[in-house]
Design a protein around this nucleic acid. Structure first.
Lengths: 166, 166
DNA sequence: GTTAGGCTACTCGGATAGCCACTGTCCGAGTAAAGTGGG
DNA sequence: CCCACTTTACTCGGACAGTGGCTATCCGAGTAGCCTAAC
């Protein structure tokens, strides 16, 4: 049970993108520099987010990424599913019917209890992730911030944010 | 996000072991044959379960494994943690302070909101797994069983179960 | 001066190597049971 | 006949290769802006 490191980068990137003004975009290079990670690798996950409908891509020079919908409508679950894929962590291989003397097929119409219990726990996990939006994280951070972090982010955004025609 | 295949094998093995009588043991070879998996590989996970205090090992000829405590006291979470390890799936690399212009350290005393949210979801996931015991799975299976599965398991157990002195 | 055309440079996108963990396997240490010889 | 020792064979335990996916990277497709030159 392990999540890729890209998930953290993706969440931080989306959180940063939620702070830019309407119509502004941020390049992958800027995001990577701010977070101190590889640009090419971050690009891979930004593409996944774009494919998942979370980010909107602006091509060409002065291009970059921006949120495809308001931060209130983007949950942690959306990001995790876009980056890690929608497949469940637990995969039932039906080993119960792989023995030398399997039971009749009629017992296997329903998935086994073990798989059901594991998948149920995973649904609870995803439901919990779906409760938290990017906007929630921003508001939460603003409460404990005396202005230093906000100032740092704003300075970075003003330095790298780009206004696009469309 | 992916769980190893060994988790499924481990859960099924523990469920099978919960069906044998007091003082009886089952060899890893028998468990592997019943489930149609590699004996050597299943041994790896049975060792993990033994190290986690879930199974009790009986060495020597006519040896094998048995539950270290009643099935009512063994949860799915215990098995998952024993096989996959106790480390959380989400690992915060603190990329927020890896940029070229990190904020003062005093903001990093508390873990970041993102990590907190992800770990909270994981706690919920684990809590859900902890609700289901092996005994629950057995009782649940008995409800939909007309006796065929129970007969098959009993036949296999009587064929391979071993009584030990201790 | 205006405008159309071409060019440049910068961006994202997909295809390509490298590395680590999971998968699968093997041989050795340990032990209970059976066999054997003596008392 | 009983007992203790030796042998045996079977079990688990930890150490050893193979493979798939995550990590990291590179080069190509596409486009907005800029420069140039003609009108």
């Amino acid at each position: 049970m392990k999540l890729g490191d890209g998930v953290e980068q993706a969440i931080h990137s989306v959180a940063m993108l939620s702070g830019l003004s309407e119509g502004g975009v941020l390049s992958a290079a800027a995001l990577a520099e701010f977070h101190g990670v590889s640009t090419s690798y971050l690009l891979k996950h930004l593409q996944a987010l774009s494919g998942g409908g979370i980010l909107h891509t602006v091509p060409g020079p002065k291009g970059g990424y921006r949120l495809a919908r308001p931060a209130e409508k983007i949950t942690l679950l959306d990001i995790v599913l876009a980056v890690e894929g929608p497949a469940p962590a637990f995969r039932c291989n039906e080993i119960r019917q792989r023995g030398p003397n399997p039971a009749p097929d009629r017992f296997f119409a329903k998935p086994c209890n073990i798989s059901a219990a594991m998948l149920k726990a995973e649904r609870v996990y995803r439901a919990e992730l779906a409760k938290t939006t990017i906007a929630d994280l921003g508001a939460e951070l603003a409460e404990i911030d005396d202005g230093t972090i906000a100032a740092r982010s704003c300075a970075f955004l003003e330095l790298h944010e780009r206004r696009t025609a469309r």
